[in-house]
Amino acid sequence: MQTETLNFPDMPTLRPETLRVSGLSLARGEVMLVRDFGLELAPGEAVVMSGPNGTGKTTLLRAIAGFIRPEAGTIDIGSHAPAVAAAEALAWLGHADGLKPGETPRQALRFWADMAGQSRKAILPVMRTMAIESLIDRPAGRLSRGQQRRTALVRVALMNRPIWLLDEPAGPLDGGGRARLAELVAWHRSRGGSVIAATHQKLDWPDGKRIDLGAHR
Protein backbone atom coordinates (compact mmCIF):
# COMPACT_ATOMS: atom_id res chain seq x y z
CA MET A 1 0.00 0.00 0.00
CA GLN A 2 2.84 2.40 0.84
CA THR A 3 4.50 3.46 -2.34
CA GLU A 4 6.08 6.69 -1.15
CA THR A 5 8.57 6.71 1.66
CA LEU A 6 7.65 9.09 4.43
CA ASN A 7 10.24 11.41 5.85
CA PHE A 8 9.94 11.79 9.57
CA PRO A 9 11.60 14.79 11.14
CA ASP A 10 14.56 14.74 13.45
CA MET A 11 13.33 15.31 16.93
CA PRO A 12 15.16 15.36 20.26
CA THR A 13 15.88 11.85 21.46
CA LEU A 14 13.05 10.21 23.36
CA ARG A 15 13.63 9.03 26.89
CA PRO A 16 12.01 5.61 26.71
CA GLU A 17 9.86 4.64 29.68
CA THR A 18 8.23 1.41 30.75
CA LEU A 19 4.60 1.36 31.81
CA ARG A 20 3.62 -1.18 34.45
CA VAL A 21 0.04 -1.87 35.40
CA SER A 22 -0.69 -4.52 37.97
CA GLY A 23 -3.73 -5.76 39.85
CA LEU A 24 -5.80 -2.94 38.38
CA SER A 25 -9.52 -2.83 39.13
CA LEU A 26 -11.72 -0.10 37.73
CA ALA A 27 -15.34 0.70 38.45
CA ARG A 28 -17.81 3.03 36.82
CA GLY A 29 -20.84 3.91 38.87
CA GLU A 30 -20.41 0.91 41.17
CA VAL A 31 -20.10 -1.52 38.30
CA MET A 32 -16.72 -3.22 38.12
CA LEU A 33 -15.46 -2.84 34.56
CA VAL A 34 -11.96 -4.18 34.86
CA ARG A 35 -10.79 -6.64 37.47
CA ASP A 36 -7.19 -7.51 38.32
CA PHE A 37 -5.75 -6.25 35.05
CA GLY A 38 -2.03 -6.39 34.47
CA LEU A 39 0.13 -5.05 31.67
CA GLU A 40 3.76 -4.30 31.03
CA LEU A 41 4.57 -2.05 28.13
CA ALA A 42 8.28 -1.88 27.33
CA PRO A 43 9.84 0.69 24.99
CA GLY A 44 9.08 -0.11 21.37
CA GLU A 45 5.98 -2.14 22.12
CA ALA A 46 2.44 -1.56 21.01
CA VAL A 47 -0.76 -2.84 22.58
CA VAL A 48 -4.12 -2.83 20.88
CA MET A 49 -7.07 -3.20 23.25
CA SER A 50 -10.29 -4.39 21.79
CA GLY A 51 -13.62 -5.44 23.16
CA PRO A 52 -17.25 -4.43 22.76
CA ASN A 53 -18.55 -1.05 23.93
CA GLY A 54 -18.73 -0.63 27.68
CA THR A 55 -15.95 -3.05 28.52
CA GLY A 56 -13.80 -0.29 29.95
CA LYS A 57 -11.28 0.46 27.20
CA THR A 58 -11.63 4.21 27.58
CA THR A 59 -11.82 3.92 31.36
CA LEU A 60 -8.56 2.00 31.37
CA LEU A 61 -6.80 4.62 29.25
CA ARG A 62 -8.16 7.39 31.47
CA ALA A 63 -6.93 5.56 34.55
CA ILE A 64 -3.43 5.25 33.08
CA ALA A 65 -3.51 8.95 32.31
CA GLY A 66 -4.43 9.61 35.94
CA PHE A 67 -7.91 11.04 35.37
CA ILE A 68 -9.63 8.16 37.16
CA ARG A 69 -8.47 6.71 40.42
CA PRO A 70 -8.51 2.91 40.35
CA GLU A 71 -10.37 0.86 42.95
CA ALA A 72 -7.28 -1.24 43.40
CA GLY A 73 -3.92 -1.82 41.79
CA THR A 74 -0.99 0.31 40.73
CA ILE A 75 0.08 2.14 37.62
CA ASP A 76 3.76 3.01 37.37
CA ILE A 77 5.63 4.80 34.64
CA GLY A 78 9.40 4.57 34.43
CA SER A 79 11.84 1.75 34.95
CA HIS A 80 13.12 2.98 38.30
CA ALA A 81 11.51 4.28 41.44
CA PRO A 82 10.45 7.03 41.80
CA ALA A 83 8.04 6.70 38.95
CA VAL A 84 7.81 9.41 36.29
CA ALA A 85 4.77 11.69 36.41
CA ALA A 86 2.11 10.86 33.85
CA ALA A 87 2.20 14.45 32.61
CA GLU A 88 5.84 14.06 31.57
CA ALA A 89 5.69 10.71 29.84
CA LEU A 90 2.30 10.53 28.16
CA ALA A 91 0.84 11.90 24.97
CA TRP A 92 -2.93 11.73 24.91
CA LEU A 93 -5.45 11.32 22.14
CA GLY A 94 -8.97 11.15 23.51
CA HIS A 95 -12.36 10.83 21.87
CA ALA A 96 -12.28 14.58 21.27
CA ASP A 97 -9.42 16.01 19.28
CA GLY A 98 -8.71 19.00 21.51
CA LEU A 99 -8.99 21.46 18.64
CA LYS A 100 -10.65 24.87 18.77
CA PRO A 101 -12.93 25.53 15.79
CA GLY A 102 -11.52 29.01 15.21
CA GLU A 103 -7.90 27.96 15.44
CA THR A 104 -5.87 26.78 12.45
CA PRO A 105 -3.61 23.72 12.71
CA ARG A 106 -0.63 26.06 12.49
CA GLN A 107 -1.78 28.04 15.53
CA ALA A 108 -2.81 24.98 17.50
CA LEU A 109 0.31 22.96 16.78
CA ARG A 110 2.63 25.87 17.49
CA PHE A 111 0.89 26.29 20.82
CA TRP A 112 1.29 22.64 21.76
CA ALA A 113 4.91 22.59 20.61
CA ASP A 114 5.54 25.56 22.92
CA MET A 115 3.70 23.83 25.76
CA ALA A 116 5.86 20.72 25.40
CA GLY A 117 9.01 22.76 25.01
CA GLN A 118 9.57 21.30 21.55
CA SER A 119 10.80 23.02 18.44
CA ARG A 120 8.18 24.32 16.02
CA LYS A 121 10.34 23.10 13.15
CA ALA A 122 8.88 19.61 13.34
CA ILE A 123 5.32 20.78 12.70
CA LEU A 124 5.42 20.86 8.92
CA PRO A 125 7.29 17.57 8.38
CA VAL A 126 4.94 15.67 10.70
CA MET A 127 1.92 17.24 9.03
CA ARG A 128 3.35 16.09 5.72
CA THR A 129 3.56 12.52 6.94
CA MET A 130 -0.14 12.73 7.77
CA ALA A 131 -0.80 14.38 4.37
CA ILE A 132 -2.48 17.47 5.77
CA GLU A 133 0.22 20.09 5.24
CA SER A 134 -1.96 21.90 2.70
CA LEU A 135 -4.60 22.48 5.40
CA ILE A 136 -2.24 24.22 7.78
CA ASP A 137 -4.04 27.57 7.64
CA ARG A 138 -7.62 26.35 7.51
CA PRO A 139 -9.61 26.83 10.73
CA ALA A 140 -10.17 23.49 12.47
CA GLY A 141 -13.92 24.04 12.36
CA ARG A 142 -13.78 23.71 8.60
CA LEU A 143 -11.74 20.51 8.54
CA SER A 144 -13.44 17.15 8.10
CA ARG A 145 -13.55 14.75 11.05
CA GLY A 146 -10.76 12.69 9.50
CA GLN A 147 -8.61 15.76 8.90
CA GLN A 148 -9.18 16.87 12.49
CA ARG A 149 -8.10 13.45 13.71
CA ARG A 150 -4.96 13.63 11.64
CA THR A 151 -4.19 17.06 13.10
CA ALA A 152 -4.63 15.65 16.59
CA LEU A 153 -2.26 12.80 15.74
CA VAL A 154 0.33 15.33 14.59
CA ARG A 155 -0.06 17.00 17.99
CA VAL A 156 0.53 13.66 19.72
CA ALA A 157 3.75 13.15 17.75
CA LEU A 158 4.93 16.73 18.34
CA MET A 159 4.75 16.38 22.12
CA ASN A 160 7.72 13.98 21.83
CA ARG A 161 6.60 11.85 24.76
CA PRO A 162 7.55 8.18 25.08
CA ILE A 163 4.13 6.63 25.77
CA TRP A 164 1.15 7.34 23.55
CA LEU A 165 -2.38 6.68 24.77
CA LEU A 166 -4.73 6.60 21.80
CA ASP A 167 -8.48 6.22 22.19
CA GLU A 168 -10.03 5.09 18.90
CA PRO A 169 -7.21 6.69 16.91
CA ALA A 170 -8.52 5.44 13.58
CA GLY A 171 -12.19 6.20 14.28
CA PRO A 172 -12.87 8.76 11.56
CA LEU A 173 -9.83 7.93 9.40
CA ASP A 174 -10.08 6.57 5.85
CA GLY A 175 -7.86 3.82 4.43
CA GLY A 176 -5.04 6.20 3.59
CA GLY A 177 -5.28 7.78 7.01
CA ARG A 178 -5.06 4.41 8.72
CA ALA A 179 -1.97 3.50 6.71
CA ARG A 180 -0.33 6.78 7.69
CA LEU A 181 -1.31 6.23 11.31
CA ALA A 182 0.41 2.83 11.12
CA GLU A 183 3.52 4.53 9.71
CA LEU A 184 3.47 7.13 12.46
CA VAL A 185 3.17 4.44 15.13
CA ALA A 186 5.97 2.41 13.54
CA TRP A 187 8.22 5.50 13.50
CA HIS A 188 7.42 6.21 17.15
CA ARG A 189 8.22 2.63 18.15
CA SER A 190 11.45 2.68 16.18
CA ARG A 191 12.56 5.59 18.40
CA GLY A 192 11.87 3.62 21.57
CA GLY A 193 8.35 4.88 22.08
CA SER A 194 5.39 2.72 22.96
CA VAL A 195 1.67 2.87 22.21
CA ILE A 196 -1.56 1.71 23.80
CA ALA A 197 -4.58 2.04 21.57
CA ALA A 198 -8.19 1.27 22.33
CA THR A 199 -10.21 0.42 19.27
CA HIS A 200 -12.94 -1.69 17.89
CA GLN A 201 -11.54 -1.38 14.41
CA LYS A 202 -8.88 -3.60 12.97
CA LEU A 203 -5.52 -1.90 13.23
CA ASP A 204 -2.84 -3.50 11.14
CA TRP A 205 0.17 -2.85 13.30
CA PRO A 206 2.98 -5.41 12.99
CA ASP A 207 3.62 -7.49 16.12
CA GLY A 208 1.32 -5.39 18.25
CA LYS A 209 0.08 -7.21 21.34
CA ARG A 210 -3.66 -7.75 21.40
CA ILE A 211 -5.75 -7.62 24.53
CA ASP A 212 -9.42 -8.45 24.56
CA LEU A 213 -10.82 -6.53 27.49
CA GLY A 214 -14.06 -8.49 27.29
CA ALA A 215 -12.12 -11.42 28.74
CA HIS A 216 -10.77 -9.46 31.70
CA ARG A 217 -13.72 -9.53 34.03
Partner: peptide
Amino acid sequence: DDHGDGTAELYLLSG
Protein backbone atom coordinates in the same frame (compact mmCIF):
# COMPACT_ATOMS: atom_id res chain seq x y z
CA ASP B 1 -15.45 24.65 25.75
CA ASP B 2 -12.30 23.06 27.17
CA HIS B 3 -14.37 20.43 28.89
CA GLY B 4 -16.25 19.44 25.76
CA ASP B 5 -13.49 19.52 23.14
CA GLY B 6 -10.84 17.56 25.02
CA THR B 7 -8.58 20.52 25.82
CA ALA B 8 -8.99 20.02 29.57
CA GLU B 9 -7.33 16.58 29.38
CA LEU B 10 -4.50 17.95 27.29
CA TYR B 11 -3.94 20.83 29.70
CA LEU B 12 -3.70 18.46 32.65
CA LEU B 13 -1.25 16.23 30.78
CA SER B 14 0.79 19.11 29.38
CA GLY B 15 3.39 18.91 32.12
